[in-house]
């Protein structure tokens, strides 16, 4: 067993876990944060993306022990009670989700993208989301939502 201490959505979580535990398993199985999803085994679908110290990372491809001491944000950590984060709100407004399975990963990727570039172009967004797959939307409304979300985030500073 290994002891990890990870800050998740602002809360310190300390646990004894098997060393082989993946970060996504730690989040889903140990903390019950099931908003982070697993859609593949090859680090390609992006459903499991979370922010680790602000960086978008596939949580299925790193061990929980590698995140020891890190600050992790998951989809559960974005809304303020009943008030959606501007990026979440933009996804709703622009109908950027249908089944919703890939959505958390897209939003976390979008947040990293906007952190890197405040006003991304359509091309920036399309290339920035290459690590996320969606089978429902044809990406059309996701692109629009990320653009709108970035603008909304710029407005609120």
């Amino acid at each position: 067993m290994a002891r990890v201490s990870i800050k998740v959505n602002g809360k310190d979580e300390a646990c004894e876990i098997k060393p082989r535990t993946l970060l996504v398993e730690f989040l889903r199985d140990h903390l019950g944060l099931t908003g982070t999803h697993v859609g593949c085994d090859t680090t390609q679908c992006g459903c499991c993306i979370v922010l680790i110290d602000g960086k978008a990372v596939n949580s299925c491809t790193m061990l929980a022990v590698q995140a020891n001491g890190a600050d992790v944000t998951t989809i559960e950590g974005l809304a303020d009670g009943g008030k959606l984060h501007p990026m979440q709100a933009a996804f709703r407004e622009h109908h950027a989700l249908q089944c919703g399975f890939c959505t958390p990963g897209f939003i976390m990727s979008a947040l990293e993208l906007v952190a890197k570039k405040k006003n991304p172009t359509e091309a920036d967004i399309r290339y920035g989301l290459l690590g996320n797959m969606c089978r429902c939307t044809g990406y059309e409304n996701i692109i629009k939502a990320v653009k709108a979300g970035a603008e909304a985030m710029a407005r609120v500073g």
Partner: peptide, 23 residues
Amino acid sequence: RSVRRKEDFRLLTGKGHFADDYN
């Protein structure tokens, strides 16, 4: 009318109930 979706709040906040979410 393009009514915004009732489903979205739970899906956007990680509160959906997908098949693997049950234990």
